[in-house]
Each structure stands twice: as C-alpha cells, then as structure tokens.
C-alpha cells in the first residue's frame, strides 16, 4: 500500500518540487496551499507524513501544527517543517511542538527524500 504524503505550501513551485522528488517512489503526494486546506485534507485522508510550510496565508504552519496536535486522529502524524527562514527562536518552537524534522529552503531533492525516508518507508516500485 502506498504511503501518503501531504505537502502544504502556498508556493505552487515548492509543491511541484515535492511531488517531483517523490515521483519515483510508491507514494501518493497530496497538495494544499494553506493550513486550512491542509487540515481538511489531513482529516479526510489521514496522511502518513505532512510536509508543512511555515509561512502561509489564511492559516500558517504553526497554527496548523497546533490544530494537528489537538486532533485525536492526527496528533501523532509526523510533521517535517519547510521554511525559508532559520531563526533560533523558530527552531526552538519546532522542537517544543514535536516537529520531527525541518528543512530550510533552498533544499536539494535528495535531501528531502533522505529526511522523509528516515521517518516513513520509501519504496521504489518494481517495474
């Protein structure tokens, strides 16, 4: 059964990069452009992992993270934060809220695959 990754980012470009990175693996990548959309999709699809942007309109990554952590079905879903910034305060906040890992943009495709692969199994389907 393929694993499901939810990519929540207001940048269509980043969502495309994420989808491209996991294309060769047996996984389904779902997309949302803000935290509100992300929560709706997460509640319905129960993803195995969420790649979550920090800064987004409507609902940002930290708000969505708070909602995930207080949701009975979603509180244990591993979250990897994606951010264009790297301030010490932000990293401390990620740790406090149980974020499994984070990636600072720009990131290499291989880097995101490696980080996600440490948390969920990524399998290349046999042709």
């Amino acid at each position: 059964m393929p694993i499901t990754i939810l990519s929540v980012d207001d940048s269509k470009m980043v969502r495309m990069l994420v989808s491209k990175a996991f294309k060769k693996f047996d996984c389904r990548v779902l997309e949302a452009s803000n935290g509100l959309e992300g929560m709706a999709i997460a509640a319905q699809e129960k993803p195995d992992l969420i790649l979550l942007d920090f800064t987004m309109p409507v609902m940002d990554g930290m708000e969505m993270l708070d909602m995930l952590r207080s949701h009975d079905d979603l509180k244990t879903v591993p979250v990897v934060m994606l951010t264009a910034e790297r301030s010490r305060d932000m990293l401390a906040e990620f740790a406090k809220k149980g974020v499994r890992d984070y990636l600072v943009k720009p990131f290499r495709e291989q880097e995101i695959v490696e980080r996600v692969g440490r948390i969920v199994p990524l399998v290349v389907p046999v042709a």
Binding site: S11, M13, A84, E85, R86, S87, D89, V104, K105
Partner: peptide
C-alpha cells in the same frame, strides 16, 4: 518568485540572528 523568496529568506535569517 520562489527563488527570490529563498534569497530574501536567507537575508531575513541573517538579520534575525
């Protein structure tokens, strides 16, 4: 837009720190 955002993010992080 995204490449510029990444550049600005790098600058912002240095300013924040």
């Amino acid at each position: 837009g995204e490449l510029t955002n990444m550049m600005a993010g790098f600058i912002k992080s240095r300013l924040d720190n």
